[in-house]
Simulated assay, not measured.
Amino acid sequence: MKVTQAEFVISAAAPHQFPQDALPEIALAGRSNVGKSSLINRMLQRKSLARTSSQPGKTQTLNYYRINGQLYFVDFPGYGYAKVSKVQRKKWGELIEAYLREREPLRLVLLIVDLRHAPTEDDCLMYDWMQHYDIPCLVVATKADKLPRSKWQKHIRLAQQTLGMPEGQQPLLFSSESGLGREELWSYLVEAIHGGEPEFFDAKDDIT
């Protein structure tokens, strides 16, 4: 998809702060430092719209990014960071659960994992939770450029088995450095939002 406009809208700390314009929303979940901000920047072809941080757990709100005036990316707080207090983790958990179960514009959750490592216990809990509540989810394995291509299939299988993904499903490989997977992911998002209806986006948009 050709991104002509991308803007940060709000850091929402409570449901009453969520946008009310009913645009479709794509949420991004994953552990701290898994590369969610880098993925957003690559998808939107912006260098620093979503700010990356060397301090895991810094994102404490649901960060909304509006794209072409047509949809939102919603960046969740990273989970699994030990230095975040139990009280704060509980608060984040309640906010995210309320969003996932009640947010009408939500179309898809991207569960971001690191291809180099087996999914964590927190990744598995998030995946199982979404499966239980029948929330549409796509697993995206980032940092593919950090591994030799010859090892990709081994690590894909590891992610499949660890998460317990259904037979025939596998993570989508992605690299924020090289752009691997960007067009494929955009095509998937278009289908998730509007069943692949091309008229949802401008005719000039390049979707492959």
Rank of each mutant, 00 (worst) to 15 (best):
V74L: 02
V74H: 03
D75E: 09
D75W: 03
D75R: 08
D75H: 02
D75S: 11
F76A: 02
F76K: 03
G78F: 04
G78I: 09
Y79S: 01
G80H: 00
A82N: 07
A82R: 04
K83Y: 03
K83M: 07
K83A: 15
K83D: 08
K83C: 06
V84H: 09
V84A: 10
V84Y: 11
S85T: 15
S85K: 06
S85E: 07
S85W: 10
K86N: 15
V87C: 00
V87W: 12
V87N: 07
Q88N: 11
Q88W: 05
R89S: 14
K91S: 11
K91H: 14
W92D: 14
G93Y: 12
G93E: 06
G93H: 01
G93V: 13
L95G: 13
L95M: 08
L95W: 08
I96G: 03
I96A: 13
A98I: 03
A98R: 10
A98Y: 15
A98D: 13
Y99K: 08
Y99I: 11
L100F: 11
L100G: 09
L100Q: 10
R101V: 12
R101D: 09
R101H: 15
E102Q: 15
E102S: 13
E102G: 14
E102R: 15
R103Q: 11
R103G: 06
R103E: 08
R103K: 09
E104H: 06
E104P: 02
E104M: 12
L106S: 06
L106T: 01
R107T: 02
L108C: 04
L108K: 08
L108Q: 13
L108E: 14
V109G: 05
V109Q: 00
V109L: 06
L110N: 01
L110G: 00
I112K: 02
I112F: 01
V113L: 02
